[in-house]
Each structure stands twice: as structure tokens, then as C-alpha cells.
Amino acid sequence: MQTRHSTTDRIEETVIAALLGLMTMVTFANVVARYLFNSNILWALELTVFMFGWLVLLGASYAVKKRAHLGVDALLNMMPQGLRRGMALFSVTCCLVFALMLLKGAWDYWAPYAELPPTTGRWFPTGLNFEMRGQGWYEVQDIPMIAPLKFLETLINEGQSYEKIPKAIPYLVLPISMLLLTLRFAQAAGAIWRGESDRLVASHEVEDELENIRAQQGEHE
């Protein structure tokens, strides 16, 4: 079980690090092209914006998994253990409901671009709307179409060619990230319910690190 979790961590960390590295490389290349060659990479800005969106959205779910989001626990620490656990369950339930709503909204926004039916219902899905007109022909503004994605022309664009990549590609992160966020909150809820944790965020990490540093300094003295 631990190996599987470690492998998942490595995959997520690698994807996030790759996005950050690619953003830096593309931005640097565009600066070099502009100031040294008086040219411009037309698609660099749009690609960087999309990669930043992927980075933030995937990072949000990973931070929930690692309990790395910021939180204020001054009042929580003053409560008895039972009440603290109850408050944590209430908090994670609110987060889980909100994540489910985000997941529905993300799917409904992305699905037409992929020629898939969005859900019906205002707050929570009650079915699928097969009458919604697809929008698979929508393209991004600047990023050119690449050969490995040509299969999408048949899959979602009725065989018509794309000049730019379809919007279904960069916007795919919306349902993926919201699904991961929902799963992370569900895992956090399970840990709190089983008594393995009493809060959503890690407590006093800075103070713990400072104590470790002081202890190490004391050993050297």
C-alpha cells in the first residue's frame, strides 16, 4: 500500500515539476527570441497560461492530499478532542460538497468541447443532456495543431482539420483536477472519521521545524 502511494506521489510531483519547468523554458525562449532576434513565439504566452492553470489546479488537489493548504487552528486547538473531531468532520463535509459542485461545473463546461453531454440539474447532476449542441470545433487562439493530436479531428470534429489545437485539450484539466480534489477530500474525510486525523491541514509545521533546528543546535553545542 505504501509503495502505491509513493508511486502516485512521484507521478503527481513529476507532472507538477514538469509543468513548472516547461513554463520556465517557454518563457525564457520567448524572451531570447524577442530581445536577441527581434522575433516572437506567438503561441508562447497562451501555452504558458494554460500550463499555469494546469499547475494550479493539479497542485490544489495535491496540497489537500499532503495537508499543505494554509489554515488557522487557534480556536481548534482550544477545543476538546471530541469537539475538534466533530468540527473537522463538518469542515471536510463542506469542502467535499463544494468539490462535488466544482466537479459538476467543470464537467459541464468541458464536455461540449469534447462532444460529450453535460449534466442536467442546477447544483447536482440529475442526468445527462444529450440535446446540448457540441462545440468540438472550437480552437485555442495561438497554439498550432500537432500531429499526435490529429485523431481528435475524427473523434470530435467530424473529420474536419484543426489549424490550432481544440479547446478540449487544455480544458481537460478542469474535470480531472476537480475529480482529484473530490477524491482527496473524501480521503481526508475517511481519515478524520477513523480517528487518524482531527483537522484538514497540518498543524504548526513551522514551529515543529524550529524546534527541530533548536534541538540540533543544542546537540552540537
Results as ranks from 00 to 15, higher is better:
147 A>F: 15
131 E>D: 14
111 A>W: 13
44 A>D: 03
20 L>G: 13
34 R>W: 12
125 P>L: 00
87 M>K: 03
97 V>H: 00
41 I>E: 11
80 P>S: 03
19 L>M: 06
20 L>R: 02
129 N>D: 14
64 V>M: 07
83 L>I: 09
65 K>D: 13
134 G>Q: 06
69 H>I: 14
64 V>K: 05
43 W>M: 09
112 P>L: 00
148 P>G: 09
96 L>V: 04
125 P>G: 02
92 V>A: 07
155 L>Q: 11
25 M>V: 15
68 A>N: 12
34 R>S: 15
40 N>R: 11
50 F>D: 15
127 G>C: 07
145 M>Y: 08
14 T>W: 13
14 T>L: 13
75 L>H: 08
33 A>Y: 08
85 R>I: 14
121 G>R: 01
81 Q>P: 12
130 F>D: 04
146 I>C: 08
109 Y>T: 04
145 M>E: 06
58 L>H: 11
57 L>F: 14
153 E>Y: 02
37 F>S: 05
125 P>N: 01
16 I>V: 10
94 C>Q: 05
106 A>F: 15
86 G>M: 10
56 V>C: 06
142 D>H: 15
46 E>I: 04
62 Y>P: 02
66 K>D: 09
18 A>R: 00
105 G>Q: 08
92 V>S: 05
98 F>C: 05
98 F>Y: 11
90 F>V: 15
146 I>P: 06
131 E>W: 15
47 L>I: 07
42 L>P: 00
18 A>E: 00
106 A>I: 12
68 A>T: 01
146 I>H: 05
103 L>Q: 08
35 Y>H: 15
56 V>A: 09
94 C>V: 11
45 L>D: 14
139 E>A: 03
38 N>T: 07
133 R>S: 13
70 L>S: 07
22 L>R: 01
77 N>A: 14
150 K>S: 13
126 T>L: 11
122 R>K: 04
101 M>F: 09
122 R>E: 08
47 L>E: 01
54 W>E: 02
68 A>I: 08
154 T>D: 15
70 L>W: 05
144 P>G: 13
38 N>S: 12
113 Y>W: 06
25 M>K: 10
121 G>S: 02
16 I>F: 14
118 P>L: 12
39 S>R: 10
87 M>Y: 14
78 M>Y: 06
78 M>N: 07
142 D>T: 12
114 A>G: 11
128 L>S: 00
93 T>D: 03
142 D>N: 12
61 S>R: 01
27 T>Y: 15
40 N>F: 14
125 P>E: 02
78 M>R: 07
30 N>G: 01
106 A>G: 13
75 L>N: 02
14 T>Y: 09
23 M>R: 04
96 L>H: 01
153 E>N: 09
89 L>P: 02
137 W>F: 13
19 L>C: 08
121 G>P: 00
153 E>W: 01
146 I>V: 10
127 G>E: 05
96 L>S: 05
34 R>D: 15
118 P>Q: 06
72 V>Y: 13
153 E>V: 07
149 L>I: 07
25 M>P: 00
95 C>S: 09
76 L>M: 07
92 V>H: 08
115 E>V: 10
128 L>M: 04
134 G>E: 06
70 L>F: 12
109 Y>L: 09
16 I>H: 10
100 L>I: 14
25 M>Y: 13
86 G>S: 08
92 V>F: 12
20 L>V: 14
45 L>R: 05
148 P>I: 13
17 A>I: 13
18 A>S: 02
105 G>L: 03
55 L>N: 00
35 Y>W: 15
